[in-house]
Amino acid sequence: MGDLIYAIELLTTGVFTGLMYSMVALGFVLIFKASSVFNYAQGAMTLFAALTVVGLMPHLGLAGSLLATVAVMCVMAVVAERIVFRPLMGASQLTIFMGTVGFASILEGAAQIVWGTKPQGLKLDIPVEPLKFGELLVSRQDLFAAAVAGVFVGALVWFFRNTRTGLALRAIADDPAAAQVVGIKLRRVWAIAWALAGAIAIAAGVLWGNRIGVHFAMSLIALKALPVLIIGGIDSVAGVIVAGMIVGAAEALGEGFIGTYIGGGVQDVMAYIVALLFLMFRPSGLFGQSTILRV
């Protein structure tokens, strides 16, 4: 019985962690959906957003600083569009990717200059003691994070299906030229996509900040988003959630059950092993459209 409880706890821990990965991956999905660009700067944006929230909190309180950060991220979106996308419009995907790498470098430097390099704590006032279901322990923090992730995903799915901008985004992702012919303003839509990605970065940054503190290494969490994207389908919002849970669960269970036999440390590669398996057998992921980029 003990082992079963242990397995379930491992599973729930993993799933909740996975949902946190999904939060970050959502930002990537958004920008990819809008412009077919992999935004390497998403991690830096998450860090920047988290630092801004924490930095403003003593002055404006949590709600106030969240709102202010939204404004900041919108400004950042406009800036990004102007210095990364507009000049590089028409260039190859790889070049634009490198552009986002450059942008990430700028953001990281700027974030640390403005807010300093001191690690900050970000505390959402959620009690620390876990909930007890019989022998099972479930963390309240994780539940909250899961709820937030769920809300965001729901909102985004609704956005893409039901709003004009959402439809415009999907149109652009499908065929940028045709979309422009129909009258969709590419740059405006891109700016909106980046702004949304910024909002997601705030949510992800706050949730992760609550979990691991706000500091530089946060931008590395973003890399975990890649396997999530592959497994879920790089352009599917719903897929991101499911994939995140799969990645998290695989990590935790892998660590717990395989790791003990080979000396541990499996957690970090599990995500990529699962992603590789998907790439071999189902590259479009769980929910992605299978027309994209298959040979």
């Binding site: 990364v84 552009g99 790498v101 990430a104 470098s105 700028i106 990281e108 430097g109 700027a110």
Partner: peptide, 12 residues
């Protein structure tokens, strides 16, 4: 940190 910024700017 400014080194990072300058680098990114030059890359772009």
């Amino acid at each position: 940190n400014a080194e990072h910024i300058v680098f990114g700017v030059l890359v772009l």
